[in-house]
Design a protein around this nucleic acid. Sequence first.
DNA 1: AATTGTGAATTGATTCACAGCT
DNA 2: AGCTGTGAATCAATTCACAATT
Lengths: 207, 207
Amino acid sequence: MRSAIPKKSVYRLSVYLRCLDQLHETGVLMVSSHALALAAGVKPTQLRKDLTFFGHFGTRGLGYEVATLREKIRDVLGRKELRPVVLVGVGNLGAALMNYKSFEKEGFEVVAGFDLDTSRRSKLRQPVLSMEELKSFVRSHRVKMAIITVPAAVAQSAADHLVSAGITAVLNFAPVVLRVPSHIVVSNVNLAIELENLSYFRSLAEH
Amino acid sequence: MRSAIPKKSVYRLSVYLRCLDQLHETGVLMVSSHALALAAGVKPTQLRKDLTFFGHFGTRGLGYEVATLREKIRDVLGRKELRPVVLVGVGNLGAALMNYKSFEKEGFEVVAGFDLDTSRRSKLRQPVLSMEELKSFVRSHRVKMAIITVPAAVAQSAADHLVSAGITAVLNFAPVVLRVPSHIVVSNVNLAIELENLSYFRSLAEH
DNA sequence: AATTGTGAATTGATTCACAGCT
DNA sequence: AGCTGTGAATCAATTCACAATT
């Protein structure tokens, strides 16, 4: 049994890291689990429990050194080197993500876009290439991660292409459940469902 | 105690609805929990359990009538009328979301964008208005939901504006934890964290 | 015979309560 | 005195096992 670590703890680790970044920028040296948890929007005990899955980083009576904890979490999350990402489907959303500043800031670089229509290269820094060029590009640039922003109807085909090119992690924005081999990691972001959910809980709340 | 219904069940309800839409389009009349669960990427028992929170919609021995179940889920999710949404922050991502087809298809209409720079109206169908116009627009159009796609530094201020204008649900793309009154529903989408998570689990998987 | 619906059992996540350091 | 780290307890979600129904 490799991973007794809850998925959600890993997710929150990223949230804590963002908060630590902010504290670091503003020159704060030490932080208590109470203060950091407040900033992250969780309970102090949850923060401490989350951290225990990865080690013990604090000093009893004092709290956590911001710079150190930040560094440790970056290590856990593998934030040493810049990680290249390719994107398939250079439509409105795809192009926006190719320009998305937070990706770079957090250590990801969208190195190329792929699309049936390679004329969609307008004001992008990165090249927009044809699907035929995908495999050789991914291999030669040793890319392991991809973003899918194609229409639902062609998302499975895009995923198949990516997998056969050697991609092992996919962030999928297409509203379909992708079928991939079990060693491939897929994470789905369905924006329409996010809105739909929000709408549901909003209606509940107004009573 | 109103809601003993798990958040995740509601989320999956939206996923089931997408699958039912597809089945409906392809003319399928009946579906078993097994088949629908397969399409949705969950276990049959989970699908059935999820449905029991909202009623019983199937026929033992036969399964579920696609059209009926679809209709019932639409009812639960409040998908009767078109729901207007405003968006604050008409940058790359914001503009892409204002054009996002899946929103319309799923019953949401982004009716206006708001930005400090109202010249960002380029090829959008919807008007891009100044922040001063937000409150009166939201009130006169009876908008209840908003999308925040401004930079992190001004996201809290955007949220404050929205809340005081009468918005009660926010889909937040800015990488900050928003402070809002307790009756406001916030859902966060942090794309950089999604990639970071994916990267973490990808690294785990390659062993 | 097939398939739903659901209590009971299990598994997983969160919170509590307090021992252990500084 | 203050705060972390963590086993135990609680709470929530998932899965099992099977009775109920067509």
